[in-house]
Design a protein around this nucleic acid. Sequence first.
RNA 1: GCGCAGGUGGCGGAGUGGUCAAUCGCACGCGGCUGUAAACCGCGCGCCCGGAAGGGCUACGAAGGUUCGAAUCCUUCCCUGCGCA
Length: 308
Amino acid sequence: MIKKRKLIIIVGPNASGKSELGVKLAKKLNGEIISTDSRQVYKGLNVGSGKITKKEMRGVRHHCLSVANPKKVFTALDFKKCAEKAIATIYRSGKTPIIVGGAGFYIDAALGRVKLGGVPPNFKLRKRLSKKSALELLKILKKLDPKRAKTIEQKNPRRLIRAIEIALLKKKCRGVNFAGFASTQPRGPLGGREESKINTAALVWIGIRRPPEELKKRIRARLNKRLPNIIREVKRLRRGGLSWKRLYDLGLEYRYVSLYLQKKLSKDEMVQKILTESWHYAKRQMTWFKRNKKIRWIPNPKSLPTIL
RNA sequence: GCGCAGGUGGCGGAGUGGUCAAUCGCACGCGGCUGUAAACCGCGCGCCCGGAAGGGCUACGAAGGUUCGAAUCCUUCCCUGCGCA
């Protein structure tokens, strides 16, 4: 039996101060950071995604940052692979891995708390299905996988399409053992575990939770400071060949700044949109994390728990 | 001062005699999420009781009136925008 190694996970909403805490802990514990952010994985999405700067890293090594081409979708599975590799590397060098991020789904995927199927995205199929209504999609799914049809969010086209994608491939490969498939996987207390080095680690969850008004203020301050650079960044991304559509899908600052640059929003509308949407996002992040009872909540990065 | 348009829930904006506590969008609150996740989706949202069904109360600028019944019709008043003075 391998001795349990420590793995620290720092979570919290947008603009709560996770990166700062991460570096602080890394310094203290001789650790390295695995950033868990669905937009910071892309090259060129820097200011807008709130990516930590070289200077802010203070010499601490960060993994899974700027590892993907923004033109292509980087999936949760891609992230999981990156994180696992990083964790292995960090352990090998005798250091402590510290996962820092706000993308709850990615973190849970990386740790095997959410099981990813093994069915890659089929963009042609998605495109075709995207023309159908949720009701039509549900009908299709009912035929393909009645079991999944019962548990799925019945009005969410994106989920329905993915479920159909899975069911279709499953059908095609009937006979093969697909026990690992998400669609038939019970949700167990941890959503099903997987074999990995992570299972042998002692997980320490830390969450930063700030009062709503304070968080809103931080979000606003951060945007004010960065907006000019974000606009510049979006222009640069455009020149680099990102479509408006892609920028829209990237969400938040990328979405609304590009609408502004296309003159579909005034500057003021853009700012308001980014602010409220960032707040909504922060709340969504919190609802994700609230379920995780292992998280120890602290009010700010300064109140470092003594458990370490 | 005259003419025209209008005043509806936190905001925008429908409704124009009963089926209206009032379509819808936004904000706000809560939640979901199994390879797009900063994406995507659901529920609630006047007040009070209820798990719900349902019931009670107060509401559509103000005050009166018509009517079995008014956010909707009439009168007066107050306010706003545009036009003419």
